[in-house]
């Protein structure tokens, strides 16, 4: 794969340096058959350095999940070698089954089939709370 040119695929740009692999695993890109390139510590005028992921295939990206992991990334959709759409993600209002509630007193700790849903309660500080018990997850991912 020539990482400079994708014919049909996705470029996830402006990833905070060091988070590229987290996103790679989180979006399960390791399960894809197509070529995937992770560029670490690329020079960036805006960020100093950044990570970039290039995926040589059109696929649906969970933008909410991406926004939760890194709200500053941009997603470029490439078709026939042309940039056809550039999307900026943001912290989603609600995330479902992206992270798990780790409060042992939460109902989700005993009833396995309940979806783990978190809502954004403080956008400026990026605080999410479990909709059931309102606790904050201990780890972001």
């Amino acid at each position: 794969m020539n990482i400079d040119s994708i014919r049909n695929g996705i470029v996830i740009d402006h990833i905070e340096a060091g988070k590229g692999m987290d996103i790679y695993h989180f979006l399960r890109l390791d399960e894809l058959d197509c070529s995937v390139a992770i560029i670490k510590n690329a020079a960036s005028r805006k960020m100093g350095k950044k990570d970039i992921i290039k995926i040589d295939s059109a696929l649906d990206i969970d933008l909410d999940a991406l926004g939760y992991i890194d709200p500053d990334v941009s997603v470029n959709i490439i078709e026939n070698g042309e940039l056809v759409r550039k999307m900026h993600v943001e912290l989603p209002e609600k995330i479902t089954n992206i992270i798990k509630c780790n409060n042992p007193r939460c109902i989700t700790s005993v009833e396995q089939e309940i979806p783990h849903i978190f809502k954004l309660t403080d956008r400026s500080r990026g605080v999410y709370r479990c909709i059931y018990c309102e606790s904050v997850p201990k780890h972001k991912m």
């Binding site: 007193r105 109902i107 989700t108 005993v110 009833e111 479990c130 909709i131 059931y132 018990c133 309102e134």
Partner: peptide, 23 residues
């Protein structure tokens, strides 16, 4: 005793739920 149990109940119930204390 588990926090959020009445909320789950309200999502599934066909009648009103009153939370009488969840943990």
């Amino acid at each position: 005793p588990k926090e959020g149990a009445p909320m789950i109940a309200s999502m599934r119930s066909e009648v009103p739920i009153i939370n009488a204390g969840d943990g």
